[in-house]
Simulated assay, not measured.
Amino acid sequence: MPAVWTMFNFISALLAVVIAVSVLQGIARGATGSARHLLFIVTEGAVTVASLYFAWQGAKLLSPQLQTWLAERSIQIPTEAMGFFKQLYYTFVTAFRDFPLLRFGALFLIGYVVLKHVLYLIADPLLRIALPARFHRADERRPSLSSALAGGAIGAVTGFGRALLLVAGLFIFVTLFPHTPLSGYIQGSQLYQKGAKQVIEPFTGDLIASQLPVFTRAVEREIGNIMQRKYEVIDAAVPTDVAEAAKEVTAPGKTDEEKAKLLYKWVGSRISYDWNKVRDYEERGVWHEQTPEDTFHTRKGVCIDYARLYYVMAKAAGLDAKVVTGLGYDGQGGYGPHAWNEVYLREKSAWVPLDPTWYSSGGNWFNPPKFAETHVREA
């Protein structure tokens, strides 16, 4: 029994069921009903492919023009306090202007929905005109044996098409996540391997295998940039007392690096880690939101509060900085949610990382050589 169970593969079973159900549906519908169903599936596929293609081309054409139009409007994030909806507006508009994948994706999605609807409106009446009247109504009587057999054959073609679509989806998943247990299980299916190797791979070449992971990583980077933009908008207004403190702290610095280090030491040494805030969140599910001004005055916060305070103080001191979110090493072999900063040093023409939260733990966390081994940027 165990040997038989280990040989059984749910993916193969699922693909077989998809084909079998289509065959049974074909037999039940008969030749005319199955042919009509197959025709509508083919039409839907053609409309979908055409919509995807023209939406893609349209997005490629419109995206740079829209970026230019938005850039000419010189939209700037206000430096005064903003309400939630105003923050949301500036986050979206400036991200739409500055991040090409977001802009392209939105245009592509809108174009696809509109085009598919329009093409359906065109295709439906054309089919009704071109096809015999009997194709537009279901056979109310039970199909004859010959009609049922023909319907079953047509259903088999439909089933193979559906199965290939499922294989294509699984193929994309395996390409993106090759080292997961689920991917290994999928690849253990003989039916999946035949569909992937004999149809999907020859048809797509190295497009999916080589380009899709690259595209996915680019999307991940852009999501991180959008998260950064959110904090830029939320913390656009720097309180006067915070700005004055930042200028005073960085006054001895002559270079961007010296100013950035002075701020790193000041925030890291002046702010105490708020363990009560952590406990409230972990044990009661209560998150105490606070602004950089709150952190500045209470002298307490968690990693995101350290990072946001550093960001606004750096901005007030004339530095270009970022809030970065991701995972931080917990010292016990694992990683947990964390936030830190990056600051741009003009004399080095480079962004460098720093972690003011970890300042009090000892060691140098201002651009150390192996920073990336303990900090993993959010994907």
Results as ranks from 00 to 15, higher is better:
2 P>M: 13
7 M>G: 14
13 A>F: 15
14 L>C: 14
17 V>Y: 08
18 V>W: 02
20 A>E: 08
21 V>R: 10
25 Q>W: 11
25 Q>M: 15
26 G>E: 01
31 A>F: 12
31 A>K: 12
31 A>P: 01
37 H>N: 15
39 L>Y: 00
40 F>H: 14
43 T>V: 04
44 E>V: 09
47 V>W: 08
51 S>P: 07
52 L>Q: 10
53 Y>T: 12
60 K>S: 10
63 S>R: 09
70 L>V: 02
71 A>F: 09
77 I>R: 06
80 E>Q: 09
82 M>F: 00
82 M>E: 02
83 G>V: 09
83 G>K: 07
86 K>F: 14
92 F>N: 00
95 A>I: 03
99 F>C: 02
100 P>G: 06
100 P>C: 04
103 R>W: 04
104 F>M: 06
108 F>E: 09
109 L>F: 14
110 I>M: 14
112 Y>R: 14
118 V>W: 08
124 D>I: 15
128 R>Y: 03
129 I>T: 11
129 I>Q: 09
129 I>F: 11
135 F>R: 13
148 A>H: 01
151 G>F: 00
154 I>P: 03
155 G>D: 01
159 G>F: 02
165 L>A: 13
167 V>T: 07
169 G>Y: 06
170 L>G: 03
178 P>M: 02
180 T>F: 11
181 P>G: 07
184 G>P: 04
194 K>T: 14
194 K>S: 12
205 G>I: 03
208 I>W: 05
211 Q>P: 01
212 L>Q: 06
217 R>P: 05
223 I>F: 04
225 N>A: 15
232 E>Y: 05
233 V>P: 02
234 I>K: 07
235 D>H: 10
236 A>R: 04
239 P>S: 07
241 D>H: 09
244 E>A: 13
244 E>F: 06
247 K>G: 08
253 G>P: 05
256 D>A: 04
257 E>G: 11
259 K>D: 13
260 A>R: 00
261 K>R: 13
263 L>H: 05
264 Y>E: 01
265 K>A: 09
266 W>Y: 07
267 V>T: 06
268 G>D: 01
269 S>Y: 07
272 S>F: 12
277 K>Y: 13
280 D>K: 12
280 D>S: 14
281 Y>G: 06
287 W>F: 15
288 H>C: 11
306 Y>E: 03
306 Y>F: 07
310 Y>Q: 06
314 A>S: 03
317 A>Y: 12
322 K>G: 00
325 T>Q: 15
327 L>G: 10
337 P>E: 01
338 H>A: 03
342 E>F: 02
344 Y>F: 05
346 R>V: 00
347 E>N: 02
348 K>G: 05
349 S>T: 08
350 A>M: 08
351 W>E: 01
357 T>C: 02
364 N>H: 03
370 K>L: 09
371 F>Y: 00
375 H>I: 01
375 H>Y: 00
